[in-house]
Amino acid sequence: MKPLLYGVMGRFETPEALLDAIRTLRRENPDLRLEAFAPYAVEGLTEALALPPSRIPLITLAGGLVGGLGGFFMQWYAAVVSFPENIGGRPLNSWPMFIPVTFEMAVLCAALAAVFGMLLSNGLPRIYHPVFNTPHFGLATRDRYFLCVRSGPAGTDKINTEHWTRVLTQLGAQTPVEVWS
């Protein structure tokens, strides 16, 4: 299989240099496809990359509501429909006794929805990514910051690598390299 050009990647020493480079590139071309890699969360990186808002809070809320309602109706069905028992003269649908299990099911399902939603939205688990082949990319988990200017859609080779190598060097990137899949 013919390798496809993924983009051009440059290494930056500080998070400020990375953010300045992204902001400069965004001012010149707002539709540019950029990816940034950092060893920790960098304040302002999401806004600089113009990433869409996260859907994780909505997924967590939906998981909590489904879990809470499922826990409540599971108990209601068992106490009222499946096996009704009149204990101490209380009504069959005694909702106060359903609250602890309802709460615990809501918390459990919300937590599971948040974890699995985060994994899916991040595209994980991902065994292989083209940037893993670039030299020095292991430093992205320690103390360096990387910026990748992506090629066109579906891995097409529509990117001027010489131009972007020169631009990244002017922005302060060290050793810009081409990234191939």
Rank of each mutant, 00 (worst) to 15 (best):
P3H: 05
L5M: 11
V8C: 09
G10I: 04
T14Y: 07
E16V: 14
L18V: 04
A21D: 06
T24A: 14
R27V: 02
R27M: 10
E28W: 08
E28F: 08
D31Q: 08
R33M: 15
A38K: 11
A41F: 13
A41Y: 14
V42D: 06
G44P: 10
L45T: 09
T46F: 08
E47H: 12
E47G: 13
A50I: 06
A50K: 15
P53Q: 07
I56N: 03
L58W: 15
L58V: 07
G63I: 01
G67S: 06
G67P: 13
F72G: 03
M74N: 00
Q75M: 14
N86H: 12
G88S: 04
G88E: 02
G89S: 02
P96N: 11
M97H: 15
I99Y: 15
P100A: 02
M105Y: 11
A111C: 11
M118I: 01
L119P: 14
R126M: 10
V131E: 05
N133C: 00
F137M: 01
F137A: 03
F137T: 04
T141L: 13
T141C: 11
L147Q: 00
P153G: 09
P153L: 11
P153V: 09
G155T: 06
K158C: 01
E162Y: 02
T165Y: 00
T165H: 13
V167W: 09
L168S: 07
L171H: 06
L171R: 13
G172H: 13
G172N: 06
V179W: 10
W180N: 02
